[in-house]
Design a binder for these strands. Structure first.
Lengths: 107, 107
DNA sequence: CATATTCATAACTGTAGAGTTATTGATCTA
DNA sequence: TAGATCAATAACTCTACAGTTATGAATATG
């Protein structure tokens, strides 16, 4: 499973795939047939998208007889948060320095 | 300018483009020649990436004679934060901190 | 003025990947 | 058991786009 920021970005860059992820986020576990009905694309296309999402750690699957139920994995977004957090720290540091400078000038 | 979540995701999905953005984040304003030297790709390719980043609101340009200086636009990440924020309390706390920081950096 | 530098645009190529249909394996049901 | 349903895979097509080289427009420098 590839859960790097790169994988997350590439996976969520596709609007159809993002829509599937959002659907699972909002409405909980769904099987492939239901997801296909809502997506407006073919079942194999949906299955492929689900495979990519799973590889990126954004969904989990639960096989049950001839059906496969998929659900969102919110924690899968963590690498995205971390990536932004890197720059969060950077901004924080810069801001603190600027603030420090301004405080000195006030005196 | 297209600053939807879709545009941000598509723009940052490319690793070269993300590297350019990170470079600008870490080292501040840079002109095209310098960015080209570090990127390992041709100058026209870099210019094209910068055009895409600019369209997505992630960088700003400052023409100066025959040079064009580019700098990162941290606020451009806001749509990404908004998109993740849709999914509620799970990440709320971390989002709020990031968002607050972004707002402060914007002045 | 002549030459060099810097960046953007045009035109093109090659490839990744999103979609399709066809098919298979597996499981449910009448 | 026979037929129907469900999901995954294979094989294919088509398009978007990341890269290239060539060139032009603008500005700097000698």
């Amino acid at each position: 499973m590839d859960t790097t920021a790169d994988s997350i970005f590439r996976t969520l860059a596709d609007p159809t795939r993002r829509a599937i992820f959002e659907q699972l986020m909002r409405h909980g576990e769904q099987n492939v047939r239901v997801l296909t009905e809502y997506s407006g694309i073919s079942q194999p296309a949906v299955s492929k998208h689900l495979g990519v999402l799973k590889l990126a750690g954004l969904v989990r699957d639960r096989p049950d007889g001839r059906q496969t139920h998929y659900s969102a994995e919110p924690k899968g977004l963590a690498p995205l948060i971390d990536w932004m957090g890197l720059y969060g720290a950077f901004w924080r540091e810069r801001f603190d320095r600027l603030e420090d400078l301004l405080n000195r000038m006030d005196q």
